[in-house]
Structure formats: structure tokens, C-alpha cells
Computed example of a mutant assay.
Amino acid sequence: MTVVTAPYEINADDVFVDLEPVFGVPLHVKYEGLNLAGSVKLKAALEMVLAAERDGVLVPGAVLVESSSGNLGVALAMIAAHRGYGFVCVTDSRCNPATRRLMESFGARVLVISRPDKERGLLGARIDYVQRLVDFDPNYVWLNQYVNPHNWLAHYRSTAPAIAAQFPGLDVLFVGAGTTGTLMGCARYFRERERPVRIVAVDSIGSVTFGGPAAARHIPGLGAGVRPRLLDDRLVDEVVMVPERDTLESCHAMARQGFLFGGSTGTVVSGALRWLAGRPRGERLTAVALSPDQGDRYLDTVYDPAWVQRHFGAPHTWDAAGPEKELEPAVGAG
């Protein structure tokens, strides 16, 4: 019998899904949504909170404040509720309605930014607002996921070793790029191993993280309007840029096989399929993609036909054989 005293102790870290029956391509995803926060962000959130407590930065009576598109906000809201802190999440209009309600159910205040900064987009506007809050009230504590080294350390210490233990012959790892904490933690871990592993970053078209032009994005999670300060390009072998339309199609293809994954997962899987489609015919690699989130919080967006129609036009339907037949080699791969 397993007995826990904290909600973040419920976490299955060794579940992998074989997607070859779905797409006809050898690909496993590490499913990071099997915890009460519902995403990989629980690891970084807990690591940053515990480090702030050890350093004396986070003390009783403090109010956590953070900029988040959703998943980190949910994780911090849950942790703050359990450990007795207030929490204010500064998000933007792309945040899923279900995600906002979930944060509020933990007692968090959710502030929605709707006016983007002219040069740095909604993310820049969110960061500026958080900075004004902490300047105004000394009780606010900003963990700042965008520069906090414990963001990537969480994945260096847990996520990457878990992948290596299950796939000692790993050839290529696909990781989505948001704050790049997960990407950098995994990349640093595998760079230290004797056996080379190719690290492929997956990002959304419209994100500026890897130098592309900024453009409107509708699906929260991956991508950024400001280049992440945690990012070290030298640790990334290749980059695949994914249109959001492809994110939707990957999500729906997996859902039709009973796997309801989130938008970030759809992007990473789509990027992995594109990259693998560009490999020499007959080559068989051991490939793993990181699945950051569940799909239940996307029921009002990614899985809502009216929302999809409004933002992307009439949905395209993949057949049962999977979308890999129509994919071209990866865009943006080096």
C-alpha cells in the first residue's frame, strides 16, 4: 500500500507509450502527465520551491508569483496550497479556461494579460507585470522559471536518468522548447554520458527561441516571444519547427487511438515524426519524445471543433494509418 502526505508525492515517472501502432513509426514517448499537477512542470516547480525554502528566500507568509502559460502555474498552485503559501499566476489570453479554473480551485489568483508588449509579445508583458508586483510588495517571491537553474536541474536529476535507465541504447531524444528547462536538463545529462545521444529541440512556428520571426500562436505551452535565458544552443543538435496545425493533427490522431495528450505533446510528437520522416529509408533508430502534459485541459481548445474552426479553419482528418505518410522532412533541422 502506498500512503502519501503531499499531493506532489503522487507521480509515476516510468511510463512510456509506444506510438508505433498509431503512426507506423518507431517512437516512444515518456508520459509526464501522471501526477496530480498533470504535467512535467511539477518537477521544476517543486525543485524551485524547495531550493527557495533552503535558501531562506521563501518563508511563511510569503506569496509566490510567477508568469506561466498554464502548466507551471497549476503545479505551483498545488504546491503553494499544500505548503501554506499564497500564489498569484500571471498568464495571458492563450491560457486554457480549464487551466485557469484549476489554479483558482487551489486558491490561486489568476491575472490574465491581454495586451502584448510591442517587441516581446505576451510573454514580455507578463514578465514586466510580475516585476512590477515584486517591486511593489516585498512579500511576493518570484521564483522566475526563465532564469532559475533549478528549472533545468530538476530534469538533469530525474527526467533524463529515467529515460536512460529504460533506453540504454537511445539514439535520439525529442524535447519541446518552452523555458528550455526540460531541454537543457536532459541535454546536459546526456552530454556527460559516453554514448552519444542526438538532442532534437522541437518548437512552434512563431516562437523566437531559435531565431525565427515572431508570429501569433494560439496553443500555450511551447514557444516563446522572448529568447529563453536558460537556453544554450551548443547543447542542441537540431531544431524542428512545427506549425500549430500539425500540433492539432497529431493530438487528434493519438486521441482516436485512446491517448488524450496535451498541445505541447502534440507539438513534440509532430516534430519527432517530421524528423524521423527525413531519415534514410530502412534506418531504425531508438527514439524517445518527451510528453509534457495531459489533454483534459485542452478540451475547450485543441479538442473543441468550434475553437479549431475559429482559429485554423476546417479540421483535416488523418486516416487510421497515421499522418506520417503525408509528412515532409523536418523544417528547421540542421
Rank of each mutant, 00 (worst) to 15 (best):
S69W: 15
Q131D: 03
S93V: 10
V240T: 05
L111R: 09
V239W: 14
V49Y: 10
D171G: 07
G181A: 00
Y189N: 04
Y303W: 09
V302H: 07
P168Y: 12
Q145G: 02
F87Y: 05
V63K: 14
A12H: 07
T5P: 01
Q294L: 07
Q294Y: 15
L19G: 11
R279Y: 06
L36Q: 05
L111I: 11
G262C: 03
G271K: 05
F87E: 01
S204R: 05
P228T: 12
P243E: 02
A80Y: 02
K325S: 02
M254P: 08
L276W: 03
A255T: 14
A306K: 07
G107Q: 01
G225L: 06
T179K: 02
S105C: 04
R274P: 14
V302A: 03
G181I: 07
G181V: 03
E66C: 10
V236P: 06
V239S: 06
G313W: 15
H28T: 10
V240E: 00
L183R: 11
H316G: 04
F312H: 12
G176C: 02
L19F: 10
G212L: 04
F167Q: 00
V17W: 15
L183D: 12
I113T: 10
S270E: 07
G262H: 13
R284D: 10
V269Q: 05
M254I: 09
A216T: 10
N11T: 04
R94N: 00
T317C: 07
V202W: 04
G332R: 05
L58A: 10
V90K: 06
N96A: 12
D203Y: 13
M184W: 13
E238T: 06
L273F: 07
L327I: 11
F210L: 02
R198Q: 06
L143H: 04
S291T: 10
D135Y: 10
P60R: 00
S105R: 03
R245F: 14
L42Y: 11
E283F: 07
A75Y: 11
V308Q: 03
V40K: 05
E66G: 12
P138H: 11
V130H: 14
T159F: 13
E47V: 07
S264W: 13
R310Y: 12
R284M: 02
I199N: 00
N71V: 09
G38D: 04
E53Y: 08
A255N: 07
V288A: 06
V308R: 02
P161H: 11
P292F: 14
G322D: 00
A125V: 15
R281W: 03
S69T: 09
R100E: 07
G56S: 08
A160Q: 13
R101N: 08
L143F: 09
A272G: 01
P26L: 06
I113V: 13
P60Q: 05
L72P: 14
R115Q: 15
P228D: 14
H252I: 10
G121N: 00
